[in-house]
Each structure stands twice: as C-alpha cells, then as structure tokens.
C-alpha cells in the first residue's frame, strides 16, 4: 500500500490547499499518474502515484487544507484493503 501525502517542503511549510483530485476512489492508477494537485505557499504541485493499483478513499476534499506530511489517499495493490 502506497501512501500519497503532502510533502513538507521548505523551512516552514504548515499546510497545503488540495486544489483538485484527478483520480477518484476505485480508479485504476498507474505509476506516474498524477492523483491530485496541491498548492503550497510557494507553488502548485502535482502528487503522482509511485506504484500502480487502485485508489482508496479521498481523505480530504478538494479545497480543503491539508497539514504538511499528512496522507491524502492510498494506492492499493491487488488484494489489499484500506
């Protein structure tokens, strides 16, 4: 199970805004697919999956603030459950 999370970047990054989900729960994702787009105080950032599988629940909604370091969704390998 791969956790897709908001990376803590820079000296004092606290939160990011989840701008958009590009994959929905239950969607098949391939390694490299962008799953969500976030915005930090400096930049917008694509969050790609590093592994292939099926996307789990959205743990935050679009336009919600996510604390740096927090997981926003998981990618499930065959047979895994969230």
């Amino acid at each position: 199970m791969e956790e897709i999370f908001v990376p803590a970047l820079g000296m004092a990054m606290d939160n990011a805004m989840l701008l958009e989900w590009l994959k929905q729960p239950g969607d098949t994702v391939n390694a490299g697919d962008v799953v969500a787009v976030i915005e930090t105080d400096k930049t917008t950032l694509d969050l790609p999956a590093e592994t292939s599988g099926v996307l789990g629940k959205h743990r935050y909604a679009a336009n919600e603030e996510v604390p740096a370091g927090n997981t926003i969704a998981v990618v499930l390998a065959p047979g895994e459950v969230e």
Partner: peptide
C-alpha cells in the same frame, strides 16, 4: 521522515 514533516528545516 523529512517529507513527512518530522525533521525541522529539511
């Protein structure tokens, strides 16, 4: 751990 925000300052 840094990317998870556990290590202040990178």
């Amino acid at each position: 751990l840094c990317l998870r925000g556990k290590v202040p300052g990178g």
